[in-house]
Amino acid sequence: MKYVTGTVNTRESAASRASAVPPAERGTRARVARLILEHGPVTAAALGERLGLTPAAVRRHLDALLTEGMIEPRTARQRGQRGRGRPAKLFGITDAGRSAFEHAYDDLAGSALRFLADRLGDEAVADFARSQVSALVSRLTPIMREVPEDQRLRVLAEALSADGYAASASKTGTGGEQLCQHHCPVAHVAAAFPQLCEAETEAFGQLLGTPVQRLATIAHGDGICTTHVSPRHHRESKESGR
């Protein structure tokens, strides 16, 4: 979904349905959709709190987005012993909704990579993928040298968000960290060419200076791209064992 002056620029059919909606309503609906995209499956109550909307207003926007096929209802996973009552209903972005956010030229990029693979082989695609992320590495390497190690993932997440990946960083219970990318501008292309995800993961490890492991990707059908970042001592123990 692309936002222009506060509105949602969706496919033509959705745009025609939205033509009768007042501009203020379209702007709020765009904000609802973007929050669902960036923060993963969320409840209606959480959306209302973030946007300052009444339950009735949230429901109106959610119903419209559901009708357009932009979002879908999901059931919250139960952790530990189940409590009383029904599990909270969550709302997540659909493939159609995510594709509305996609940058243009997916088809052209896919065709170009297929041409490259056919003429020069898969390794040429891998080389191309590494060249694409090299700009990120070059840009952030000097910065990473200047910031404390415990701030590197935050810096990386902010850089990725600026590039359109809606990234966030968090701590894990095992002492490591987790990088989540709630949007992937090249998801459709990466689904056919995993070398793009592999090169990106390699770049993350290089920038953070510690082992990383990709746990999930939007390209493979997961809701978000999730990367586990090992604690610093994992790297130090590997180096001491050489």
Rank of each mutant, 00 (worst) to 15 (best):
G48T: 02
E49I: 03
E49R: 08
R50S: 13
R50K: 15
R50P: 05
L51M: 08
L51S: 08
P55N: 13
P55L: 12
A57C: 04
A57K: 12
V58Q: 12
R59I: 00
R59K: 15
R59E: 15
R59L: 14
R60V: 03
H61W: 10
H61V: 03
L62Y: 09
D63M: 05
A64Y: 01
L65R: 06
L66K: 10
L66T: 05
T67N: 14
T67W: 14
T67H: 15
G69K: 03
G69L: 05
E72F: 01
R74L: 15
T75N: 06
T75A: 11
T75Q: 15
A76V: 01
A76S: 11
R77L: 14
Q78H: 11
R79W: 12
G80H: 10
Q81K: 10
Q81L: 13
Q81G: 00
R82C: 03
R82D: 09
R84G: 03
G85H: 10
R86C: 02
R86W: 12
P87W: 10
A88C: 04
A88Q: 15
A88F: 07
F91M: 08
G92N: 11
I93S: 01
D95Y: 05
A96K: 10
A96F: 13
G97N: 13
G97C: 10
R98G: 01
R98M: 10
R98A: 13
S99E: 15
S99T: 12
A100Q: 08
A100C: 07
F101R: 05
F101S: 07
F101K: 00
A104Q: 14
D107A: 06
L108A: 12
L108M: 11
L108S: 03
L108C: 04
A109N: 08
A109P: 00
A109G: 02
A109V: 01
G110E: 15
A112P: 01
L113D: 06
L113W: 00
L113N: 05
L113Q: 04
L113K: 05
L113M: 07
R114N: 12
R114C: 04
R114H: 14
F115Y: 08
L116G: 02
L120Y: 15
D122H: 09
E123S: 03
A124M: 06
A124V: 04
A124Y: 06
A124T: 06
V125H: 00
V125Q: 07
V125T: 01
V125E: 12
V125D: 09
V125L: 01
A126I: 05
F128K: 03
F128Y: 13
A129T: 02
A129N: 02
A129G: 11
R130H: 10
Q132H: 02
S134F: 02
A135H: 14
L136I: 09
L136M: 09
V137R: 10
V137D: 10
S138G: 12
